[in-house]
């Protein structure tokens, strides 16, 4: 697996921390998943409840790499400001950069994304851009200073899996040395395994685990799938073919007609 800005991860599973039925289930899901990265966010804090402080204690105890996001940001300025606030709070240069351009599909505004990525990398951030499988945009992001790309599998929270296998395979082939993460859209472990089999370095998911009937069990299933896909990719899968090829030797077959 390729490094992420010089950091080698124990595995290719990045897990979100939102939408779980309870903090205890979140903790259980992370333990069962063995995820190496947790995505987190920033939201308004109440001086009375101070709910964010409890969450901070919880995620610190997970002992994983933290990847703060700029979720919900629709402009470059908003995303850049949020990134600065996240860097201070979470004490990391990593930022999952989201600049959302469209509400129905939560599709990234790739123009704003490239601009924000440039501003942030010049300011010392290590940007993980939430993008599409568009190769031209990917190239621009790399020129802007990104050393990781995170194309969507499908719209956030949709569970549709890998919507454009061709595009993702092309991206993998076009950028053989760039760490690539499928970010968003996964609904089933088989889709995570497929992403890893394509040669992606990691998958990032949240809803598929948090909204499962048993989040901790689903987290374990995703961990197994990511591991299986990674092993399979490393094992150099056979080439598919259109016609059958017998696996049992024909030579030595008895003459029984």
């Amino acid at each position: 697996m390729r490094d992420f800005y010089g950091t080698a991860l124990a595995n290719g599973l990045m897990l979100g921390t939102a939408l779980y039925p309870s903090p205890a289930i979140l903790k259980d899901a992370f333990e069962r998943s063995g995820a190496s990265v947790a995505t987190v966010s920033l939201r308004r804090e109440s001086g009375q409840d101070r709910a964010g402080q409890d969450f901070w204690q919880l995620i610190r105890a997970l002992d994983v790499h933290l990847l703060p996001n700029t979720a919900g940001c629709h402009s470059v300025k908003e995303a850049v400001t949020t990134a600065h606030m996240a860097r201070e709070v979470f004490d990391t240069k990593w930022i999952k950069l989201e600049v959302i351009g469209e509400e129905d599909l939560l599709q990234p505004d790739v123009f704003g994304l490239v601009e924000a990525a440039r501003i942030l990398t010049e300011d010392g951030f290590q940007v993980f851009p939430y993008t599409t499988e568009d190769l031209v945009v990917a190239e621009r992001l790399l020129h802007a200073g990104c050393e990781v790309l995170m194309p969507w599998g499908a719209p956030i929270g949709s569970g549709l899996g890998l919507n454009n296998i061709f595009g993702l395979r092309a991206m993998r082939a076009h950028f053989p040395d760039v760490p690539l993460v499928i970010d968003a859209g996964l609904g089933l472990p088989s889709q995570a395994a497929a992403a890893m089999e394509l040669g992606f370095d990691a998958v990032l998911l949240n809803t598929a685990v948090a909204k499962a009937g048993d989040p901790a069990a689903m987290a374990a299933a995703f961990a197994t799938a990511v591991n299986a896909g990674q092993l399979a990719q490393a094992a150099d899968p056979m080439e598919p073919r259109d016609m059958a090829a017998p696996s049992t030797p024909v030579i030595g077959k008895a003459f029984l007609i």
Partner: peptide
């Protein structure tokens, strides 16, 4: 004034 704290995120 905005005061933000760690929160769940995907």
């Amino acid at each position: 004034v905005e005061v933000l704290a760690p929160m769940q995120g995907g």
